[in-house]
Write a protein that binds this DNA or RNA. Structure first.
Lengths: 248, 248
DNA sequence: ACAGATATGGTACTCAGTACCATCGAGCGA
DNA sequence: TCGCTCGATGGTACTGAGTACCATATCTGT
């Protein structure tokens, strides 16, 4: 929520009119008029009609970049997690404003498109930073891209749940979601798992081989097994990653 | 490359002018003029100036949807792979046209944004389809989103390498990338199991080896697994016969 | 040849975004 | 106090995308 008083009045006017009359039916001139300024001032403050509902995206992006740059390569998983949390917190702090924006971005294609473009920018920052961490083997580029997109998706998943009022504790869900992402993309999970399987070595996550002699086939029991595992892991709130199933 | 002769001429004219003068410096009127038609015809053929360089995105999206819809839930990994391959092939078939588009989308923000929006549409199709496959445990939504985004990222990674001339065999790289994605997101390899089990017969007393990866160790989850198995078999009236459980 | 459907062309309009210039007020030095 | 600059603002005029509407042509089957 940065900006001069004029900018704040323009933003408020824009959100009000967009909600009342719809985005397309609202002209920049009417926004400026309601804010008591000229049309020119609007375009000087925000480059376009779309930008007025994404007030400080540039700031947040800069903060993310800065947070990432301030970390060493070895801390990458933690740095990425904290950078993503930074973005999440910014939305949470906005409260109803974020919800109003969500209502608009869900409805108006142009705004949705713009928001997706913003997410892509975050993703690229993450990718570039992660890339220095994924080493030099072939496939390192792809691994960095996969991890970056997963981080953004996890963030967005939780954010959207909060925007829809489906969660009371978004930060907890964020932690769980990020833990799940890191479990599959980081060679070893940062803190929790390290203690448990200390001796296991590179794989870091325990591999459990269950040999079943039973008349039911694998597909039938897998869901039940997964559910059981999920409960056993429950405190971490993450689904288990189930490996290959072989039958003989 | 669908469309009437008029549309083809318009596309060709648009690409030529965009390359020569740049996107912003080219007016729709000049495109229409070069194609020998009126400005109105341009907007009838393509809804906007941006759309002219994404000729048949709607078609491809429809094909993807159709390919996914034609598959059962059990085939999800294979169906998603093939649907993504369909998109890749479409680009490869375009050849230089795809490269010309890439040159534009890399440069002009509006076009880049539009392309990202298209990718998002693919991703949503994948997500919705995968969602039916990820079961009902908590976290299934997120898992579907993660897998969908990973598929799109893997596809795009290979596509971009091809567009930049960094690979001679994009399909091979695509297979490798998709294999990597499925390894982390699909519980089991797609096709093998179905084939293996085919002859075993429904009632056969097979031995099933289930490999589970989870951060908790086997002893902790074993009781839960036994209970889950007992319930699964319970409905069929057979006692559970769980063999040895090994951890590594 | 006639009637209707379809593709096209033209005209006029709205509105976002840009460029340019004029104005106003605050601060500041002489 | 006068005059100056500087930053923010307002106004005007322009380009160009996109839309609405109507007129015309071409093609179809009868």
């Amino acid at each position: 929520m940065t900006g001069s008083p004029t900018e704040q009045r323009l933003r408020a006017a824009a959100f009000e009119l967009f909600e009342q009359q719809g985005y397309d039916a609202t002209t920049v001139e009417s926004i400026a008029e309601r804010a008591g300024v000229g049309r020119t001032t609007f375009f000087r403050a925000f480059g376009s009609k779309e930008d007025v509902i994404f007030p400080d995206h540039t700031d947040v992006l800069a903060r993310v970049r800065q947070r990432l740059a301030a970390s060493s390569a070895a801390e990458t998983p933690a740095a990425v997690t904290e950078a993503a949390r930074l973005v999440l917190r910014r939305y949470l702090d906005e409260g109803d404003l974020a919800r109003a924006r969500y209502r608009l971005t869900r409805t108006i294609p142009a705004l949705r498109s713009r928001e997706i473009a913003h997410l892509q920018q975050y993703q690229q920052e993450f990718r570039d930073h992660i890339r220095r961490w994924t080493g030099e083997e072939p496939g390192a580029d792809l691994r960095a891209e996969l991890m970056a997109s997963s981080v953004v998706v996890a963030h967005n998943h939780v954010l959207r749940r909060w925007l829809r009022g489906l969660t009371e504790d978004p930060e907890r869900e964020f932690d769980a979601a990020m833990a799940q992402v890191l479990r599959t993309h980081a060679p070893s999970a940062p803190t929790e798992i390290a203690g448990d399987d200390a001796g296991a070595g590179a794989g870091a996550r325990g591999t459990t081989v269950v040999v079943l002699r039973s008349p039911v086939d694998a597909d039938a029991v897998l869901p039940a097994l997964r559910r059981a595992l999920a409960q056993a892991e429950g405190s971490e709130g993450n689904g288990p990653a189930t490996g290959p199933v072989l039958t003989s």
